[in-house]
Nucleic acid binder design. Structure first.
Lengths: 238, 238
DNA sequence: CGTGAACTTGAGATTTCTCAAGCGGGGTGG
DNA sequence: CCACCCCGCTTGAGAAATCTCAAGTTCACG
């Protein structure tokens, strides 16, 4: 159940057997979410952490008039609302696809962190990587064209999913709509659609029915000015 | 020397006398940076943490062709490269104004964190707040007009500086150029300049020679769609 | 008095947006 | 089993925001 979490935490350094056993012993309540369903809402002060076990999720803020900004995507092994441990939520988290989520009581989490500095440090590190990703998104929204921005996002997800073994033969599932894509990148759906066609036309990728196919990985990286260093992964999808 | 840091860490909950004394006992080497000088550079793997003692600093990434994106501003009491403790730097940090910086060896920092869970937690919380600010910037760059974006940034800094007691009579020092402003918000200098004039013309603020004067705080907040909740401050400048 | 950085202005070029409408497939009720 | 409907995708076209280029101004500083 927590396999992906341990994997995630061990990306940069092994945990002790003791640490691993403590994680495995976490009390976990399972729940399933349907696509689009909210897992936490802005303003909540959650009493549990939500560990994504299968499926994808995303963080977002929605303004009064309906404009929405998606701020990150989450893959299995991520805790989607870790900040809820210390702060109230200033944004919402929703399921992208059908998702299985493990609920871990804050009390258990706090005990785990206080008793296991190595886990605390590893979890903090995943947090820092998330912040690095957020900064890279800022660079994109502030300083890159729509074309580069879209290319970059696909590079990022391709690399992240690849690192989890979810890329096969240049293909991976990435079940988002063009609306999600637009809301991630700060674009209109219309423009996103046209730029997507350009990327396809340039032979870089196809994206259809929630499946991403990368036809020209070096070309796509160049188009997106993608340098995976900020992901702090150990290896990158070939 | 570390007064601001303790203040910062105690924003949400007191530390014990023991914790406070441990912080005060940190070995600290002082160094001064001139405006624009780099404190850490992308790619560095620092061996010390940089605690900002006086002055302002900012994080940024610069692309090959010179486009730059500023990703955050830092005030006294912030550790500007805390992620260097666990990761290599994927961006640079530079001094905005003349700044005094305390260098703390990573070894001392690690010992402090491992021995004092409360400090570890408090520091993590400041990190989470930073991430929240980053998300709000994303909303701005993705979904707000230049006018709202500029207003919002000034609201944010006014609130943050106000919370530190650095606002007096609706005025505060915020020593950035219009170029910095543009690079923070993903705008061209020309456009920034014109929008700034509009904000001044609408009687919301003046910004000249690195001094921000807020003439109409409610109006400015409305223009920027500013809701300080994401800053997770205890109080907001009046 | 000369110089450079920051700021300002003008004007045309681009990117991206908005509005409006048509298309297509999967799901549902009759 | 079929018609209908909705959501997501696509296209067209004019509008708006923002950018780039180019030059002029101001002011602090040496």
């Amino acid at each position: 159940m927590v396999g992906r979490l341990v994997e995630n935490l061990e990306l940069y350094g092994r945990l002790s057997e003791l640490d691993r056993r403590a994680i495995a012993a976490l009390p976990l309540t399972l729940r399933r979410f349907e696509p689009g369903e909210d897992m936490v809402i802005e303003g909540d002060a959650p009493s549990h952490c939500r560990l994504l076990i299968s499926g994808l999720a995303f963080r977002h803020k929605t303004l009064r008039d309906g404009r929405r900004q998606i701020m990150s995507f989450h893959v299995p092994g991520d805790i989607c609302d870790i900040e809820g441990l210390l702060l109230s939520m200033d944004h919402s988290v929703s399921a992208l696809s059908r998702a299985e989520v493990g609920f871990i009581p804050h009390l258990a989490m706090e005990a785990l962190l206080d008793g296991h500095p190595a886990i605390s440090r590893a979890l903090w590190r995943t947090e820092l990587v998330e912040a690095a990703v957020a900064r890279e998104w800022m660079v994109g929204m502030g300083r890159r064209t729509a074309y580069a921005r879209i290319a970059h996002l696909f590079c990022e997800m391709y690399a992240r999913l690849g690192a989890m073994g979810l890329v096969e033969n240049g293909r991976c599932r990435f079940p988002i709509t063009q609306t999600h894509l637009s809301d991630s990148l700060g674009l209109s759906v219309v423009h996103t659609n046209r730029v997507l066609q350009a990327l396809r036309g340039d032979g870089l990728l196809s994206f259809r029915g929630g499946e991403l196919i990368v036809h020209d990985w070096p070309g796509l990286q160049a188009a997106g000015e993608f340098d995976p260093a900020y992901l702090h992964l150990r290896s990158v999808a070939a």
